[in-house]
Amino acid sequence: MNLLFTLTSLSVVLVAVERFSFTTEVLLQPYGFLRLHELLQVTVLILVTVIIPALIFREVSRDFSALRSREGKWLFLLFTTGVYFYATGNGLHEVASAAFNEYCDPDAFTGDLCGGLFFNDFYTGNTMFFAGALLMNTSLLITESRNPDESSAGSSQAALVVNAAVYAVTVLAYAGFDRAPVGLVYSVGMSLIAGAFFLKVRRHYRKFPFITYSALVYALGGSASLVVRMCA
């Protein structure tokens, strides 16, 4: 699990670095249909952020053995639904973002076309994206809560804490500084959900690394985001 948490940290750092790279200046042909930035996001980077949770799902379900029950099948469907909305929302967001930033004035846009692109970029796409993330994470939390990992009881927590802090910075970036408050709503919601799961397992938290990691991520990232928004 710590290896997967580390890969998660690397993936979100890569996503952040790419957003500030030269790829945002490269317009692809024909017709300037996308920037290189959006193409990399939808084909590589966001794909990585789906594959890693899928591997975490394998771990918390004990090599998918926990999915053989009726409840397990519903959790699998919940996770799959989350992946669908997460990926679809990101695709909608990236395509709208490419057109909005290339052909509209982001700070003073007018007209239905640019207004629609703005809304799809910051609200429609982001709402679907974060709703999918919430469903994915909730299915992972439920699955692990039903299947404690006895082998992780004596493992070191240092790597978990460091990786949680790295991801919390990403939560802060989306929830605290984004133009729309969708990310903030998501982070607060996940703080409550992950916190509730952690309270149930707190005496044996070492057996529930994903719950512990998630609770720490959103407690740090969510609270920091609220402070930033209130002070803005």
Rank of each mutant, 00 (worst) to 15 (best):
M1N: 02
F5H: 10
T6G: 10
L10N: 07
S11P: 06
L14W: 08
L14P: 01
A16C: 07
V17C: 07
V17I: 15
E18F: 14
R19V: 05
S21N: 04
S21L: 06
T23Y: 04
T23V: 01
T23I: 01
T24W: 07
E25F: 09
E25R: 10
E25W: 03
V26R: 00
Q29S: 15
P30G: 13
P30V: 14
G32A: 07
F33L: 10
L36D: 00
L36Y: 02
L39A: 11
L40Y: 01
L40Q: 00
Q41G: 11
Q41M: 13
V42T: 04
V42K: 04
T43Q: 07
L45F: 09
L47W: 14
L47C: 10
V50R: 09
I52N: 05
I56H: 08
I56W: 04
F57H: 12
V60D: 02
S65T: 13
L67S: 03
E71G: 15
G72F: 14
K73T: 12
W74G: 11
L75H: 11
L75C: 07
L77R: 08
L77T: 13
T80K: 03
T80L: 10
G82R: 00
Y86M: 09
A87D: 02
T88E: 07
G89W: 05
G89M: 08
G89F: 08
N90M: 10
L92I: 15
E94L: 05
S97I: 00
A98I: 00
A99H: 08
F100M: 04
N101D: 06
D105E: 10
P106K: 09
D107Q: 13
A108P: 06
F109N: 02
F109Q: 02
D112N: 15
L113H: 13
L113G: 05
C114P: 11
G115K: 00
G116L: 04
G116W: 09
G116T: 04
T124Y: 11
T124M: 06
T124P: 05
T127C: 12
T127H: 10
M128K: 04
F129V: 14
T138F: 14
I142W: 10
T143A: 11
S145Q: 05
R146F: 12
R146G: 12
E150M: 06
S151V: 11
S152K: 03
S152F: 04
A153T: 15
Q157L: 12
A159T: 12
A159M: 03
V162H: 02
A168R: 00
A168I: 07
V169C: 02
L172P: 01
Y174E: 00
G176I: 10
G183L: 01
G189P: 08
M190P: 14
G195L: 03
G195R: 08
F197T: 00
L199Q: 03
L199R: 05
R202E: 02
R203Q: 13
Y205G: 05
R206A: 14
R206N: 15
K207T: 07
F208K: 01
P209N: 07
F210G: 00
F210I: 02
F210A: 01
I211M: 00
Y213H: 06
S214Q: 09
A215G: 13
A215E: 00
L216G: 06
Y218H: 15
Y218L: 08
A219K: 01
L220C: 03
G221H: 02
G222W: 01
S225N: 04
L226S: 11
V227I: 14
M230E: 06
A232T: 14
A232E: 04
